[in-house]
Design a protein around this nucleic acid. Structure first.
Length: 619
RNA sequence: GGCCCCGUAGUUCAACGGAUAGAAUAGAAGUUUCCUAAACUUUAGAUACAGGUUCGAUUCCUGUCGGGGCUACCA
């Protein structure tokens, strides 16, 4: 069901009400809400809204045709908004009057808000009560969650775009949203890049080398792994040991572990290198985030949360909620949940990944008392989050139930997943560079940049390139794995971001030509214009938008919005190809089309905005 | 081995249990004196397989086959 609007009642709700009433009159039963939901009539049939009558047949004791006829007749009689109905098999197709459509359009264009952006204030009054949550408890969305030993790659790109878009979607659906990042800034992998830098770096810095900070640190991590592999090979050859044994004897590995111990002991020298190198990485990340257009309200660092996690675990142990083995390691018994027991503190008392996440969850809960804590994390960690929830339950934390893992699929390459060992990792910055380069090439080839200065051009190419990338990724259902082929550049034609951007630019061009005065006139002058099929199709898509946003928010799937935006743009192009807006002789029709085009541009802008995609005025 | 996810045109993606399974791209053929041809039109092409549930299944259930993930005192 569409969200209840303050003020006017939508035709759909009135229709549903009439149907419910009719069914009740005849049968004495109240039909289920889900059966009263209307769907937009498919393109190939006449009508605007469709009611499926099959669910009512038993109660009404009528044939599909009869039932549809009865209901259709009653609806047309009782509601001015509905002008006619057609019955096709068990489907009742209702047509709304042209006048109703035009009133809706005028209202949409003059209202303060446009579709889907109602803001928290417009949320229905008893909503919080109904959910038993006091006030405006926010939703916390964690995304990005990078490690500080490697630059961002394509997988992070999907994660960041999803997390950011999801946050905007939830806000559009009336929630208060806090965007957070959790930086994994501690652990053996960080020590590896530190060690390599200390050994081989000779004081190299981003300034001295001109390298982006995250890249520089990533290079040392790679260098460590190479040096380590070489040392291990040598040990294996010289001493005839197997790989595991050789690994544990390798001096590099021992030094890295030693570094970790010194770090945990807060050795000032180690801390100094650590914070310096992390600083470089953050500078680099910030550049990438800025280019991607994502941001955070708060950043958590694992180095701040793992100790809290350890305290919580120790407390749980004291309370007897956890158990300790003879070697000193601490475990959660998850046998009752059908899972293996989970280690929470190692024999030497240090923390594991799970321990840190326990601390993070607690800290986050204390900070925001969120109604929901969403973690945008890859589906390879399904098990981890399952266990996390179970462990928190075991520890008696009620917020365990507020945790939701938005488990998204991997980005795969034609030969499978990215592997750093095989050098197939697609770097985020490189990818963005390439997108912008392609945007430049394509745009210049079309020769449409005369009127822009250099700065405007750069901005435009960035907008188009990033638009293509974001749309490419967000149009896919987050839960599914998706494929990226580095050999083929991401498309700019067809079902793509630039296609939608281009459609918007064309509309804006028409609107500029019309001018403000004519636009104002049009609002009043459009009444009485007959609506033709291609206009009707556009109207349907435009007014379907709010429910699409709602659906996208509840299903946490920005792809819903992306695909709707494409439908809308395509539908506009079809209309625009066949019919003139400003050249139309009939004043009412021309005005109506102008309004239609304007609303179309607005919905495209807000909808694409929810995907983090900007739409240029010209391109 | 166990658990989880996924199999839709050549390819990449759609489809609250609803009508004749939509698009894009690649292929073939067209459209520009006209508000931006990054557009529009036509054409051909798919639900892995076998059962079941029901008015109706790509969607839900069972089995088979195929792909991926997880199953660390890594993160």
């Amino acid at each position: 069901m569409p969200r209840q609007k303050t003020g006017t009642m939508k035709a759909e709700e009135k229709i549903a009400a009439v149907v419910a009433e009719m069914i009740h009159e005849v049968t004495g039963k109240t039909p289920e809400n889900k059966h009263l939901a209307l769907q937009v009539t498919r393109r190939e049939f006449e009508g605007d809204l469709t009611l499926v009558v099959f669910p009512f047949l038993k109660a009404l004791r009528q044939s599909p045709e009869q039932a549809a006829q009865t209901l259709g007749k009653a609806i047309v009689e009782r509601l001015d908004e509905v002008s006619s109905y057609q019955v096709v098999k068990g489907f009742l197709n209702l047509s709304l009057s042209d006048d109703y459509w035009q009133r809706q359009l005028a209202e949409a264009l003059t209202g303060e808000e446009n579709g889907g952006h109602e803001g928290p204030a417009a949320a229905p009054a008893g909503k919080e009560e109904a959910e038993g949550v006091g006030g405006q408890a926010p939703v916390v969305v964690e995304y990005s969650s990078p490690n500080t030993n490697k630059p961002l790659h394509l997988g992070h790109v999907r994660n960041n775009l999803l997390g950011y878009s999801l946050s905007l979607l939830l806000e559009a659906a009336g929630q208060k949203v806090i965007k957070v990042n959790l930086v994994n800034d501690r652990g053996i992998h960080i020590c590896k890049s530190m060690l390599a830098w200390m050994r081989f770096g000779q004081g190299e810095s981003p300034e001295s080398s001109g390298k982006k900070g995250d890249k520089l640190v990533g290079d040392y991590y790679v260098q460590f792994e190479q040096a380590l592999r070489q040392e291990v090979e040598e040990i294996m050859a010289d001493q005839g040991l197997d790989r595991d044994e050789a690994l544990s004897r390798a001096s590099l590995m021992r030094e890295a572990r030693d570094l970790l111990r010194r770090w945990e002991a807060r050795d000032p020298k180690v801390m100094q290198v650590w914070s310096m190198m992390n600083g470089w990485v953050y500078e680099g990340f910030d550049k990438s985030y800025q280019r991607l257009g994502v941001e955070f309200d708060k950043v958590y660092y694992e180095s701040d949360t793992y100790l809290l996690g350890r305290d919580i675990v120790l407390e749980g142990l004291k309370k007897g909620l956890l158990y300790q083995k003879e070697d000193g390691s601490v475990w959660a018994d998850l046998g009752a949940d059908g899972l293996d027991d989970k280690l929470l503190l190692r024999t030497d008392g240090t923390s594991v990944y799970m321990t840190q996440d326990i601390g993070t969850a607690q800290l986050r809960h204390d900070d925001f008392h969120a109604r929901q804590m969403i973690y945008v994390v890859g589906n390879e960690q399904n098990h981890h989050f399952n266990v996390l929830k179970k462990v928190l339950h075991k520890l008696g934390k009620p917020y365990a139930d507020t945790i939701h893992h938005l488990s998204y699929g991997m980005v795969e390459l034609p030969d499978g997943r990215m592997k750093s060992r095989e050098g197939t990792v697609v770097d985020a910055d490189d990818l963005m560079d390439e997108m912008v380069r392609t945007a430049r090439k394509t745009t210049e080839a079309l020769g449409k940049t005369h009127s822009l200065d250099e700065k405007e051009k750069d901005l435009l190419y960035h907008t188009i390139g990033l638009g293509a990338l974001k749309y490419f990724i967000l149009k896919v259902d987050p839960r599914k794995n998706m494929l990226f082929n580095p050999e083929e550049s991401i498309d700019f034609n067809g079902n793509t971001g630039p296609f939608i951007q281009y459609t918007h630019a064309r509309i804006r061009s028409v609107l500029r030509k019309a001018g403000d005065a004519r636009m104002q006139e049009a609002l009043l002058a459009m009444r009485g214009a007959p609506i033709i099929p291609k206009e009707k199709q556009l109207l349907k898509l435009l007014f379907e938008y709010p429910s699409v946003v709602e659906e996208a928010a509840t299903s946490m799937n920005p792809g819903r919005v992306a695909n709707h935006m494409y439908e809308l743009a395509r539908s506009f192009n079809q209309f625009y190809h066949d019919h003139s807006i400003l050249g139309e002789a009939d004043q009412a029709s021309s005005s109506f089309r102008l309004c239609l085009a304007r609303y179309c541009a607005e919905i495209l802008r807000t909808g694409m905005g929810l995907l983090g995609i900007e739409l240029p005025e010209k391109m």
